[in-house]
Deep mutational scan, measured.
Amino acid sequence: MDPFVVLVLCLSCLLLLSIWRQSSGRGKLPPGPTPLPVIGNILQIDIKDVSKSLTNLSKIYGPVFTLYFGLERMVVLHGYEVVKEALIDLGEEFSGRGHFPLAERANRGFGIVFSNGKRWKEIRRFSLMTLRNFGMGKRSIEDRVQEEARCLVEELRKTKASPCDPTFILGCAPCNVICSIIFQKRFDYKDQQFLNLMEKLNENIRIVSTPWIQICNNFPTIIDYFPGTHNKLLKNLAFMESDILEKVKEHQESMDINNPRDFIDCFLIKMEKEKQNQQSEFTIENLVITAADLLGAGTETTSTTLRYALLLLLKHPEVTAKVQEEIERVIGRNRSPCMQDRGHMPYTDAVVHEVQRYIDLIPTSLPHAVTCDVKFRNYLIPKGTTILTSLTSVLHDNKEFPNPEMFDPRHFLDEGGNFKKSNYFMPFSAGKRICVGEGLARMELFLFLTFILQNFNLKSLIDPKDLDTTPVVNGFASVPPFYQLCFIPV
């Protein structure tokens, strides 16, 4: 058959498939802009700032609406009420993970971030239990974070109060905490193996944040037939998995079943207990991918939040002064901060919360999916439909947070200066898919920041009023603009 005829037939089939998918069930789905064949609503979305586009569309179609990214149908949730109703009140029905062709290629359905069903539930339950087990290797997770915080302070001392970009050092600290939990080992910041790991993690975040990856996920045929950065992403992930597998083999040879040292040991012990169960989800494949998931999810998000926190503290020296006064009063100079201190430091706690609220790190979270046909607000959402959640619409709700575009710790303080919780605080998402490392991340943010401010004054290279804190939105995360500062020993 003539190649031209084959091409026309293929394009015609794709067009018909697109029209059929977009028209099927439209009477039951939430409203939304009319999609174009094949490309859907992509032309109506700013790929570099999806969150802003969703906010604009919500003003037209309401808090629940339908979009098509290519052939992929998505239902968008915008605003606290619908997000709570879906992710919390109907948590089980909305607990699936959205379709990610690239991740599915890399992870093969294993791990904790992109798995679904029984596998996801069992691996998540085990990971939560293990991360909360403060007795691994007779050292609590808090001990590990405190140790890394001391190392971080010593690295900052080496800058000798000269101007520096904190990106690298602030990236090393949370990565080392995860390494300590998974591998029972922290690395020197100049260790070549550690630097290679950091390089792969950072490069992957840069790649994932590009519009090209959005295109690959919406048109998965590209993955096999086109060159691009997605190939580098898959190569980096394969490198990390190979490295983790080597460490798993080392653990198998040296493990003491009665004295687990780290996450890998705990997983291997669980595998041993379930070795007679042919349906067990505790396999080497799941261990390797879960460890890679924890490394990827637990490094860049925390380091970016820390980097943004220091920029905001530079911009608002009056806030920094209040935090340091609270540190001096509650902790002093002669001991290290600990998590028990947080309950006695409402202002510092409010500042950490406000940093996370203000920066809105992951504006749309990772997409969910419905696990069955769901009736939601008089609409029928078919099983498997991807759910896109606007966390921006919750964290920047102007009824809950007056002047949401302003950095103001009073958003989390009552009139008496006591810490005030808010149900709208969802930087880790909400419901059954809430970030498994939430507790660890909150511990790291509090301890790293208090250790830094206990030991250093922060000095800006320019007038604080002239510092730009506008986030650089890159399609996946909101990151701070480049800046330098000086760490002046107190």
Rank of each mutant, 00 (worst) to 15 (best):
D2G: 14
V5K: 06
V5H: 15
V6C: 14
V6Q: 06
V6P: 10
L7P: 06
L7G: 11
V8W: 15
C10G: 12
C10L: 13
L14P: 01
L15W: 13
L16Q: 02
S18E: 11
I19G: 11
I19M: 15
I19L: 12
R21D: 06
G25L: 06
P30D: 00
G40E: 01
G40V: 00
N41A: 00
I45S: 03
I47W: 15
D49A: 13
S51N: 13
K52D: 06
L54Y: 06
Y61H: 09
P63F: 02
V64A: 06
T66H: 03
Y68G: 05
Y68V: 08
L71H: 15
E72V: 04
R73F: 04
V76W: 00
G79F: 00
Y80E: 02
V83H: 04
A86H: 00
L87P: 02
L90D: 07
L90R: 14
L90P: 03
L90N: 13
E92R: 06
E92A: 08
E93G: 08
E93T: 12
F94N: 02
R97Q: 06
G98S: 12
G98P: 15
F100R: 08
F100G: 08
P101M: 09
A103E: 05
A103I: 13
A106K: 07
G109V: 04
G109P: 04
V113I: 12
S115C: 06
S115D: 03
S115V: 07
N116Y: 05
N116K: 09
N116D: 09
N116F: 04
G117I: 02
K121H: 12
I123Y: 01
I123M: 12
R125E: 13
F126G: 01
S127I: 14
S127F: 13
M129Q: 15
M129T: 11
R132K: 12
N133E: 14
F134D: 14
M136R: 14
R139F: 15
R139G: 12
S140A: 08
S140C: 10
I141L: 13
R144S: 09
V145I: 10
A149F: 05
R150K: 15
C151E: 13
C151D: 07
L152C: 04
L152G: 01
V153S: 04
V153P: 01
R157H: 13
K160S: 11
S162E: 15
P163W: 09
C164G: 05
C164V: 15
D165V: 03
I169H: 09
L170M: 14
P174C: 08
N176I: 01
N176T: 01
V177D: 03
I178E: 02
I182H: 00
F183Q: 06
Q184D: 15
K185Q: 13
R186A: 05
F187G: 05
F187P: 02
Y189S: 06
K190S: 15
K190H: 11
K190M: 14
D191P: 03
D191W: 01
Q192S: 14
Q193L: 10
F194Y: 08
L197G: 03
M198A: 08
K200V: 14
K200L: 15
L201G: 04
N202T: 14
I205E: 10
I207S: 06
S209D: 06
W212N: 05
I213D: 05
Q214K: 15
Q214G: 09
Q214R: 13
I215L: 14
C216F: 14
C216Q: 05
C216P: 05
I222R: 05
I223S: 11
D224N: 08
P227E: 05
L237T: 09
L237W: 13
L237H: 15
F239V: 09
S242R: 15
D243H: 15
E246F: 10
K247S: 13
V248G: 01
V248D: 00
E250T: 09
E250C: 14
H251Q: 02
H251I: 01
I257Q: 10
R261G: 05
D262C: 10
F263D: 01
I264T: 08
I264H: 01
D265I: 01
D265T: 03
F267T: 01
F267P: 01
L268N: 01
L268E: 00
K270T: 10
K273A: 12
Q276E: 14
Q276C: 13
Q276W: 13
N277M: 12
Q278M: 11
E281V: 13
E281A: 11
F282V: 03
T283R: 09
I284D: 04
E285S: 13
N286V: 04
N286R: 04
N286G: 06
L287N: 01
I289D: 04
I289P: 06
I289F: 15
A292Y: 15
D293V: 03
D293C: 05
G296C: 10
A297I: 04
G298W: 05
G298R: 01
E300L: 10
T302S: 06
S303P: 01
S303T: 10
T304Y: 15
T305Q: 02
L306D: 00
L306Y: 01
L306S: 02
A309D: 00
L311R: 03
L314S: 07
L314R: 02
H316M: 06
P317E: 09
T320C: 13
T320L: 12
A321N: 14
K322P: 03
E326W: 02
I327E: 01
I327F: 01
E328K: 14
E328P: 01
R329D: 09
V330P: 00
V330R: 08
I331M: 07
I331L: 08
R333W: 13
P337S: 03
M339Y: 13
G343C: 14
H344R: 14
M345T: 04
P346I: 04
Y347H: 03
T348K: 01
T348W: 02
A350C: 03
A350N: 00
V352D: 00
E354Y: 01
V355I: 12
Q356C: 09
R357E: 00
I359R: 01
D360H: 05
I362T: 10
I362D: 01
P363W: 02
S365W: 04
P367S: 08
P367F: 05
F376E: 00
N378T: 10
N378G: 14
L380W: 14
P382M: 03
P382G: 04
P382V: 04
K383R: 11
G384W: 04
T386Y: 06
T386S: 10
T386D: 03
I387E: 00
L388V: 15
T389P: 12
S390Q: 06
L391E: 00
T392L: 02
T392S: 14
S393L: 01
V394S: 04
V394M: 07
L395C: 04
D397M: 01
D397S: 09
N398K: 06
N398V: 13
K399E: 15
K399A: 09
F401V: 01
P404D: 04
E405D: 15
E405F: 15
D408P: 00
P409I: 06
P409F: 03
H411A: 02
H411D: 01
F412R: 00
L413Y: 08
L413T: 05
D414W: 05
D414C: 09
G417K: 08
G417T: 06
N418L: 11
N418D: 11
K420N: 07
K421R: 14
N423W: 06
F425M: 05
F425T: 02
F425L: 03
P427C: 11
F428T: 02
S429N: 02
A430R: 05
R433L: 03
I434A: 13
I434C: 08
C435S: 01
V436H: 01
G437M: 04
L440V: 14
A441H: 02
R442P: 06
E444C: 00
E444S: 05
F446S: 03
L447D: 04
L453Y: 03
Q454H: 07
S460P: 05
L461C: 14
I462R: 10
I462K: 15
K465V: 10
K465L: 12
K465R: 11
D466N: 15
D466R: 10
D468G: 11
V472Y: 15
V472L: 12
F476T: 10
F476L: 11
A477I: 12
A477K: 13
S478R: 13
S478Q: 15
P481G: 09
P481H: 08
P481R: 14
L485R: 02
I488S: 15
